[in-house]
Design a protein around this nucleic acid. Structure first.
Lengths: 135, 135
DNA sequence: TAATTGGTTAGCCATAGAGCTAACTATAAT
DNA sequence: ATTATAGTTAGCTCTATGGCTAACCAATTA
């Protein structure tokens, strides 16, 4: 489980490089040999191989050698895992937005009732009473 | 547009660090000051501030100083942008899977008709005729 | 006015990352 | 049996990253 976290480290680190993202994109369209993958890049093969290796370590790519050619394919679990992380964050984010909406609604009602909204200045746009409790 | 690509670099690089992912997760639950954000970490403040800075450069976080306290909030566009990247790859990946399904269907029909499937060995599971065309 | 708090700047260090060349291995092709 | 192809290994450079301490503002608070 703690291992899963470091797996996310590796996946995001792998995707932080444009060459590696291009490789992943290419592999989304179907498997390919190292040579085929390397062709569009002006990079020396050993440098390119390092990228392949990083992708394999991250779990994004699997490869298998048959004869003298190594064939690479996408291993989508890692990709999906990273996507899940975003969706999870968005869920939290949107839940907060919902709470914010209801908060704003309450403010509007208070203003409609002529009350002073309790200390909301321009700077502190959203300041829930117990900020510490949300961690 | 090429700038968008390097923006993805920065977003993924930012998210590759567990400290920074934790900060983003924390900010999903609502804005916070640098001090509040730093508190759970055993890191020296200047080190922590570097993480905040990386997050700001990536566009994931915005901050504003009022008095002597700097308040940070999530800036969700960058997050959504990265999520989009995954969804786009998955769309391509799934389209290919669909094509693969129809390919397998065709194979099955051929086998049912007693034909030899044209050169599909155990190793080359999916080998569309024109692989180069898919780039 | 003096002391505290909340960040910030500057500068150092150690490791990791991305690139290279050169030399090597093993499988195909001639 | 050579030669060519497809990767691989080893080892180097250079820069970026993540961490630290020490010293330094600039707002609050006492």
């Amino acid at each position: 489980m703690a291992n899963q976290l470091s797996r996310l480290d590796q996946v995001f680190a792998a995707l932080a490089d444009p060459t590696r993202r291009a490789i992943v994109m290419r592999l989304c369209a179907g498997e390919a040999s190292v040579g085929e993958l390397a062709e569009p890049f002006e990079m020396a093969l050993p440098s390119f191989m390092k990228h392949i290796h990083v992708l394999e370590l991250s779990g994004l790519v699997q490869s298998e050698k048959s004869g003298r050619v190594r064939t690479c394919r996408l291993s989508p679990e890692a990709l999906v895992g990273a996507e899940d992380w975003f969706q999870h964050q968005r869920a939290i984010w949107e839940a907060r937005l919902d709470r914010f909406e209801t908060y704003v609604m309450k403010l509007k009602k208070e203003r409609a009732a002529g009350k002073q909204p309790s200390k909301v200045t321009e700077k502190t746009t959203y300041k829930p009473s117990k900020r510490k409790g949300t961690e």
